[in-house]
């Protein structure tokens, strides 16, 4: 699976304004709602926060991967957010998050959900790619960065 299959360039925000976890999740949720990718903003936020309550998805090194199963989507849905200042995501290493991958999956699609999360984990591994995404100034640029990753 390629993340490009589930990522709409209109669901990428390169200027996340919020400095806190809830605010940043709300911004990305609003973006998905505006682009008709989700049916219910409140449900998404509740489902994502329920997962966050079990343990932060700020996985360290400036990356956050909030994710949830939610009935508010009918298929795998991804939004990406970039914050220049950094978001306090209560990350495991104490550092602020600069890149957020919000992944939502319908219930009963555990396999594809796991596969998509694995793809995100692989994407952020190669040296330099996090910096490229963090410094991108447009959603098109982020799409190009991800495309180049897949073609490398």
């Amino acid at each position: 699976m390629s993340l490009l299959e589930i990522l709409d360039k209109n669901c990428i925000k390169t200027d996340i304004q919020s400095l806190d976890k809830l605010g940043s999740i709300q911004e990305l949720t609003e973006l998905l709602f505006k682009n008709k990718k989700i049916s219910d903003k409140s449900q998404v936020i509740n489902d994502v926060l329920k997962r966050e309550a079990k343990g932060s998805t700020g996985i360290g090194k400036g990356i956050g991967v909030p994710h949830a199963k939610t009935a508010a989507v009918s298929k795998l849905t991804l939004a990406i957010g970039v914050s220049r200042e950094g978001v306090d995501f209560t990350s495991i290493d104490g550092k602020y998050v600069h890149i957020l991958f919000l992944l939502l999956a319908p219930p009963h699609s555990a396999g594809p959900h796991v596969e998509a999360l694995s793809e995100i984990a692989r994407l952020i591994t190669p040296p330099g790619i996090k910096e490229k995404i963090k410094n991108a100034s447009s959603s098109e640029e982020i799409i190009t960065i991800i495309t180049e990753y897949y073609n490398s």
Partner: peptide, 19 residues
């Protein structure tokens, strides 16, 4: 069942053990 991916996600801290 793709156990390899599950283990990778745990190692990457994207999953917690219970999850």
């Amino acid at each position: 069942i793709n156990e390899k991916s599950l283990d990778e996600l745990l190692k990457a801290n994207i999953f917690i053990t219970e999850e």
